[in-house]
């Protein structure tokens, strides 16, 4: 059962503007990324987060700078909200050496030591055990931080998910597992991949505190993430949060979307989290229409700056191809 938004979070206008900015930044950044892909400035795989913004924005509000974050290959939004520079991310996607990983990772592998952002991991469920290990290290070193690990519902069919959940529960590590359930593992719907589609039950099966939330509702996600993070910080034990959401765009730029009806996508778009959140803010008299325009303008400038930056960036010299295969002695 999904937790109902308790609306116990009262946003100030300043907080609301920041959240709106983050939501819009992801949306417009992703649209720009798609454009740059068609212009062949970005190559390889590109997975867009459009439609799922409330999950990354909502969950990140519950984290502090000392916490660890691990994501999937659909992670541009998480990186932006985590505080990584849009230009540096764009440069990475351009494959330029001023990118966060010198351009070596590209869209699927954003890493940033400064913000404790451990990818950008592109083997489905491959990063869950690493999250357990980061939590284990924190526990052993008696550090109070938590580790937040995002993954899709596709990952929950992997053995690696079940091993990680068991280890997390067994070792009682402070890890927040966030399932971004967008209903499709690439192109195969949840009902064709999971016998038990109440995904939160799989966390509970391991004795992990578990909940699900409407992932299209930013306020609800924030509330649920706060509850989860507070529980982890209080008990030191893992927590499993399922955010039910929807991907408006194709899985990747190669996806012809043969597996779902356009009408289904349109139906979900009625619950678009970006206008949904803004409507909430105006209804609550926290922001007015002009705030939206200002946020859009600020985002536009930021994206423009990011593209300008990436366009001006350079390629890593081929001589450095093997640099960092091993640490430099």
């Amino acid at each position: 059962m999904e937790q109902q938004p308790l609306q116990s979070i009262k946003l100030t206008a300043e907080q609301a503007r920041k959240l709106l900015y983050q939501m819009l930044l992801i949306r417009r950044f992703e649209e720009k990324a798609a454009e740059m892909y068609t212009k062949e400035k970005i190559r390889g795989f590109l997975h867009l987060y459009i439609g799922e913004e409330a999950v990354a924005v909502g969950v990140m509000q519950a984290l502090g700078p000392e916490d660890n974050v691990l994501c999937t290959y659909r992670e541009h939004g998480h990186a932006l909200v985590r505080g990584m520079d849009a230009g540096v991310i764009m440069a990475e996607m351009y494959g330029r050496q001023e990118g966060c990983c010198r351009g070596r990772g590209g869209s699927m592998h954003l890493f940033d030591a400064k913000t404790k952002f451990y990818g950008g991991n592109a083997i489905v469920a491959g990063h869950l055990a690493m999250a357990v290990g980061l939590g284990l290290a924190d526990k052993k070193m008696k550090r109070k931080q938590l580790t937040c690990c995002f993954f899709g519902e596709g990952a929950m069919a992997e053995g690696a998910f079940h091993e990680a959940m068991n280890l997390a529960a067994l070792w009682q590590v402070p890890v927040l597992f966030v399932c971004e359930n967008n209903l499709y593992a690439m192109g195969t719907a949840l009902r064709y991949t999971h016998a038990q589609t109440d995904l939160e039950k799989k966390g509970a099966a391991y004795g992990i505190a578990s909940a699900s939330v409407d992932g299209m509702d930013l306020m609800a996600v924030m509330q649920a993430a706060n509850t989860a993070a507070e529980s982890i910080r209080r008990t030191g034990q893992p927590y499993f949060l399922v955010c039910n959401t929807y991907r408006f765009r194709a899985h990747s730029m190669f996806d012809a979307e043969l597996y779902r009806e356009k009408s289904e996508v349109e139906e979900w778009k009625k619950r678009d989290p970006v206008p949904g959140f803004f409507n909430y803010l105006t209804q609550q008299h926290i922001l007015i229409d002009n705030d939206f325009k200002e946020a859009e303008a600020k985002v536009e400038k930021e994206i423009e700056k990011a593209v300008e930056f990436a366009d001006a960036c350079s390629l890593e010299p081929v001589e450095e191809l093997t640099k960092y295969t091993y640490s430099e002695r």
Binding site: A129, A131, V132, G133, L136, A137, M141, G159, E163, N166
Partner: peptide, 19 residues
């Protein structure tokens, strides 16, 4: 437990975390 992927992955994470 008998979870080779799990505990090797946890070892990688723990190493990243300073252990």
């Amino acid at each position: 437990p008998l979870s080779e992927a799990g505990f090797v992955g946890a070892g990688i994470g723990a190493a990243l975390g300073g252990m």
